[in-house]
Nucleic acid binder design. Structure first.
Length: 481
RNA sequence: GGCGCUAUCGUCUAGGGGUUAGGACGGAAGAUUCUCAAUCUUCAAACCCGGGUUCGAUUCCCGGUAGCGCUACCA
């Protein structure tokens, strides 16, 4: 292990996912909190991959996590470190614990101990490991080891007393030691278990704050014992309540998307997702402040704002954040994301300049719910090949006389030398008066012909944006819808 | 089962010994009439239950209940 030479004033945090192939929502929120905390206090954020379970760890599994973090916009200062490359460290630590009497060799096979566990439980007894091997004298254990007998290393939990820690969000949490079994530190194959590798790494990497999901709350006393046995100071523990599905059970695939990438694919803007996630379990000092950019979240983030109770993932609220972000975001910033959506549907916009694209994005974005809308609902604003919503036709364009009036109107527009929002409106209203129909009738009908949709921005703004040529062509096409 | 944690509108939450219990999302109604998934206005909607402490508990304490978590040679 390296020696601790870092000033205490610089917080060191870590996000330590296991390589599950994708970044799930809960992990993303944990990562975000760590990131917000680290940035707020100008600390260091370390990424560490907990891949001690070799069977479940592949490069692709790791990549999935990184992809999720990158999309979310969470960066880190150190790492990624891989626990699989630090095995010696864990073995050494386990060895030291045996030597100091804090741990012992256990020769029970997994099957044996499981069998005895099951039996004890069946007899209504304690299902904990029966500590059989704890009684083996150290010299004898060593002899058996030297003879090549396979053994795990178990931590020797004190048989009485209690272990406590002061959690930054939950306060003091205390456990009776009798509740804790002699847990395995090092498997008989020489690989560390989670408890050993986390605390060895957290000590070695000088972590000052452990911000993680509350599912680790009950595990923490074991880790506290390890810190103590290893002679290391305790970091600040801060456990964060879990995110649940709408049915109040743990968020899982049953609830739909659990990978953050699924939200990218649904057209969610990363900033909006971050904002939404941050407010799941955290509230800024002014609780009425919900829409926040990264700067505001970083400035305001603090452990004191973290809730104790679990939160339910509310998709509706996420969509609201998303619409708010799209609306507030300048079109030029949105454009790269929108272009990705266009690519997916092979849409090549007819606009000849980015300024023109941006202007059109600005026109339609108040009605956008997600990025996909720009390639689907709003397709007609960027492409001449677009679908016409049959419901809209039914509602506004079912009358043949109206369709013909649109064609008639088109020829009026064709002759205009000016083609602005004001002039197009003037022409249409005068035309309607002539025909003795309500302007609204024509406006709604023209909307469908121009955009394929029953919902759109102000019609004349749409006309001005589309330009004279396209407006005329689409109106003339009204009889074919 | 044991242990731990939690409990305010449907959801995210604020608050806190005396409040009309606040905000946001969602919902409902209305306005606008050039559509609405835009905008504006209005409304409905909560302190889990039972004891205790107290002049007074939603708030503090205890118990219950419920939910979640942990209880692996997974992380």
């Amino acid at each position: 292990m390296t020696s601790n030479s870092l000033p205490e004033s610089i917080p060191r945090l870590r996000f330590a996912p296991s390589p599950t192939g994708y970044l799930h929502v809960g992990g993303a929120r944990t990562a975000l909190f760590n990131w917000l905390f680290a940035r707020h206090y100008r600390g260091t954020l370390v990424l560490r991959i907990e891949d001690t379970d070799v069977e479940r760890s592949t490069a692709e599994m790791v990549e999935g996590i990184l992809v999720g973090l990158r999309w979310l916009g969470i960066d880190w200062d150190e790492g990624p470190y891989f626990q699989s490359q630090r095995m010696d460290l864990y073995r050494e630590a386990a060895q030291r614990l045996v030597e100091s009497g804090h741990a012992y060799y256990c020769f029970c096979t997994r099957e044996e101990s499981e069998q005895r566990r099951a039996q004890a439980q069946a007899e209504g007894g304690d299902p904990q490991y029966d500590r059989k091997c704890r009684a083996i004298p150290p010299e004898q254990a060593k002899a058996r080891r030297d003879a090549g007998e396979a053994a795990a290393i178990r931590f020797a939990v004190p048989e009485s007393g209690g272990t406590f820690f002061d959690d930054a969000v939950f306060g003091r949490v205390e456990f009776a030691n009798s509740e804790l079994e002699d847990f395995v530190l090092l498997r008989s194959d020489g690989g560390p278990t989670y408890h050993l590798s986390v605390v060895v790494d957290d000590i070695d990497m000088h972590m000052t704050h452990i911000l993680r999901g509350a599912d680790h709350l009950s595990n923490t006393p074991k880790q506290v014992m390890l810190y103590q046995a290893l002679g290391a100071p305790l970091p600040v523990f801060a456990h964060v309540p879990l995110i649940l599905g709408p049915d109040k059970t743990r968020l899982s695939k049953r609830h739909g998307a659990t990978s953050v990438i699924a939200y990218k694919e649904e057209g969610i803007v990363p900033e909006a997702f971050r904002n939404f996630l941050a407010l799941l379990g955290w509230t800024p000092p002014d609780s009425s402040q919900e829409l926040m950019d990264d700067r505001a979240m970083i400035d305001l983030f603090d452990l004191s704002g973290i809730a104790k109770s679990n939160a339910i993932f509310d998709r509706g609220k996420l969509d609201w954040f998303n619409t708010e972000y799209i609306r507030a975001c300048p079109a030029v910033q949105l454009l790269p994301l929108i272009e990705e959506e266009w690519k997916k549907v092979d849409l090549i916009p007819f606009q000849t300049s980015r300024d023109a694209m941006a202007a059109t994005v600005d026109l339609v974005k108040p009605r956008a719910r997600n990025l996909k809308d720009f390639a689907t609902l709003f397709r007609a604003y960027f492409s001449d090949s677009f679908d016409v919503d049959p419901v809209a036709v039914q509602k506004f364009l079912k009358d043949n006389a109206v369709r013909e009036m649109l064609v008639d109107l088109a020829s009026h527009y064709e002759q205009e030398t000016e083609f602005s929002e004001a002039s197009t409106e003037k022409v249409l209203r005068e035309f309607a008066a002539h025909k003795n129909v309500k302007a609204g009738l024509l406006i709604n009908a023209a909307r469908v012909a121009l955009t394929g949709q029953g919902v759109a921005p102000s019609l004349f703004a749409v006309m001005a944006n589309l330009g004279q040529e396209r407006t005329v062509a689409r109106l003339k096409n009204a009889t074919n819808l």
